[in-house]
Amino acid sequence: MLKWYIPLGIFLILAIFLGIGLTKDPREIPTPFIGKPAPTFKLSQLDDFQKTFSPEDMKGKVWMLNVWASWCVACRAEHPLLLEMARRGDLNIYGLNYKDQPTDAKNWLAQQGGNPYGLIVVDFDGRVGIDYGVYGVPETFVIDKQGTIRHKVIGPITREELTTKLLPLIKQLEQQG
C-alpha cells in the first residue's frame, strides 16, 4: 500500500510547488527599494536644460516618479492612465526620460495625447536609472513626504493596479504628516 502512496505524495508536492510557480511572474524581481530613501540626483529638465531638478525639491509632497522613453512600447499602454491621473489631480507625476533623445521624447508626448508630467528630467546615459534599479521601462515609484520610496510598479500601470493599490496608498500617504 505504502508503495503507491509515496510516489503519489511526491507527485502532489511537486505539483503544488510548480503550481505556485506558475502564478508568479519571473520578470518581476523583488525590489530592494521599498522603505528606503529615494536615491538623490540632479538632472536637467527636458523643457529647459538650464533648469535642474532633485528629489529633495519634493520634500513634504507625495509624488510619483515615472520612468519612460519614446522607444518604450509598453509606455504607450499606460500613458492614458497617467493622463487621467494628471487630469484628476491625484498627485504630482514627474517623469524620468530614460536613455532617450529629447526631440523624440517631445514628439512622442505630442503623439500620445499630451503631457501628464509636472516636470520631466532627462537621464540621457541611464545612470540615474541604474541608481533606481531600473531594468524594464516603464517603472513607477511612489515616494512619500519624507522622500521614502513606498511602492514600485514594474511595467505599465494597469487600471486594476491603479484602483486597488496606487490610489488607496496615495490617499493614505497624503493623510500622513
Binding site: I29, P30, P32, I130, D131, Y132, G133
Partner: peptide, 8 residues
Amino acid sequence: MVQRYGDF
C-alpha cells in the same frame, strides 16, 4: 549592484 537590483 545588490543595493540597486537585490540579491537577484
